[in-house]
Amino acid sequence: MSSTTTMDLSRTARTRITDTVVWIVLASGAIFMLAPLLWMLSTSLKTQLEVFALPPVWIPEVPQWDTYVRMWENSYILSGFANSAIVTFSVTILGTLTCSLAAFSIAKMRLPYRNAIFIGLLTGIMIPFPTLMIPQFVIFARIGWVDTLLPLIVPAVFGNIIVIFFLRQYLESVPNSLIEAAKIDGASFWQIFWRMIFPIIRPAVAAQFILWFMAVWNDYLAPILYLRTPERQTLQVVIANMNVQYATQRDYPLIMGASVVALLPIVVVFLIFQRQIIESIALTGSKG
């Protein structure tokens, strides 16, 4: 009896020590993860002199909030925000609707040629964008869409195959009897979709919406292919160009400040919807 208690005691003591060690490891790891981001923030508030000071200045003596004022002058950050918002919202809102309808059709309706359509779309996932980018560029160049936001919006409005498959999988768990009952009641398929299916799949749609939103907002390759005029560029391209432009003037506070501003909206969205985002990512991963 007494020997088991001592064993238990030593076990809890051992667990406590391991827990402390693990906690310290996690905390130091967290410092490594945060350090670059904090350093970006701190650089943005330094004077030019402090940026190039040796030994390094970690925390600026007098924070130069002015960086966040002057970055808007002679820059395209504002139009970059507007363009990114136009692209991201139109793609995700219209695209999600397209994808939900398609998922409903594939999962729950008598779709002719379903297997052919399904396998066809499946092959679409396997072809990477870099293989398609040159022909797509030429196609859009021929119809005069280069240097507009349309090549970034239009193809995505036609739907995202990965989102369709994810929603289809989610719909599998919806009982068919529900839909049959609605059909017998004389509901049109649009009504069934809008009044019944869409509310049911809303959690899955929300998850995909957030992930898609972040992916489009952060996209870089397609925007630099198509957007030439500075005031038509999305935010990511704008800050990349500022990086090139101001690096020659060694104005690192401005570059870092612009990057902070570019990151801020997504980080705020993430912090607000953290639980949903993390859940949906874990779900997407486990569903493959």
Binding site: P36, L37, N218, I239, N243, Y252, I255, M256, S259, V267
Partner: peptide, 18 residues
């Protein structure tokens, strides 16, 4: 640990270049 994942690759690349 998750914050870098959601950050835009452009901003992150600029940061790490510096």
């Amino acid at each position: 640990y998750y914050v870098p994942v959601i950050c835009s690759i452009a901003a992150i690349a600029i940061l790490w270049q510096w």
